[in-house]
Simulated scan of single mutants.
Amino acid sequence: MKILELGRTIMGILSDNPQNEPMHYGEVFGVWSYLSASKGYVAGYQTFINHTGDTDLKKFLEDTVQTMKQEIEQVEKLLKVNGVGLPPSPPERPSASLESIPVGARFSDPEIAASVTKDISAGLVACSQIIGQSIREDIGMMFGQFHTTKAQYGVRLLRINKEKGWLIPPPLHVQTPELAHV
């Protein structure tokens, strides 16, 4: 009988407006971790902007930072409403002139593009994981939107990498060996 009562209680909690449903521990951990990483990426990309000489890459990074700041606002709101403490935010990085950074201490544009490509890939995996573990539809939808945006940024950066000659592909399989006739 107690199991039936527990089942009714859970169904009552989970059948209401998703925003009134409690977050489970997996959702809290995934969303909190995503927010913490996003804050770090913003600080890192602001630094990359200072090191970037390529105007297309610089514009891409500026757009990416703006998008991540919007995501951060949405995720902070979600966590605050659910009574979850927020991870610390690194300080905003100041703007610097590329010429003021010694050549040997600069990140190169191809290095920056490769690092951001890796980050986008990791972000896609993180969003997918949060979507997969979410039982709240609003959280799944939010991270579905983040995933779509990251995929679009990934394609945009891939084009930049190809156009600039920064993409280093693995060995390409261009010839098919003849099949041995047995």
Rank of each mutant, 00 (worst) to 15 (best):
T52S: 10
T55Q: 09
D56C: 06
D56G: 05
L57C: 08
L57N: 11
K58C: 09
K58A: 10
F60L: 05
T64Y: 01
T64P: 07
T64L: 12
V65P: 15
V65D: 07
V65W: 00
Q66L: 11
E71A: 15
E71P: 10
E71I: 13
E71L: 12
I72F: 11
Q74I: 12
V75D: 09
E76S: 10
K77S: 13
L78K: 10
L78C: 09
L79R: 01
V81R: 04
N82G: 08
G83C: 03
G85Y: 07
L86V: 08
L86R: 08
P87Y: 08
P87Q: 08
P88R: 05
S89D: 13
P90I: 10
R93W: 08
P94C: 09
P94W: 04
A96L: 00
A96H: 03
S97F: 05
L98P: 01
E99S: 12
I101P: 13
P102A: 00
G104E: 12
F107P: 02
E111Q: 15
I112Q: 13
I112R: 08
A113P: 10
A114M: 14
I120E: 07
A122E: 10
A122P: 02
V125E: 11
V125R: 13
C127M: 05
C127G: 06
S128W: 01
Q129W: 07
I131L: 00
G132L: 04
Q133P: 04
R136D: 08
E137V: 14
E137Y: 04
G140T: 10
G140E: 08
G140Y: 04
M141N: 08
M142A: 12
G144F: 04
G144L: 05
Q145V: 06
H147T: 02
T148M: 02
T149V: 11
T149D: 02
T149Y: 00
K150F: 08
Y153T: 09
V155D: 11
R156C: 09
R156F: 04
L157P: 14
R159H: 13
R159L: 01
R159M: 02
N161W: 00
E163A: 11
W166V: 01
L167W: 03
I168V: 14
P169G: 05
P169A: 04
P170S: 08
P171N: 09
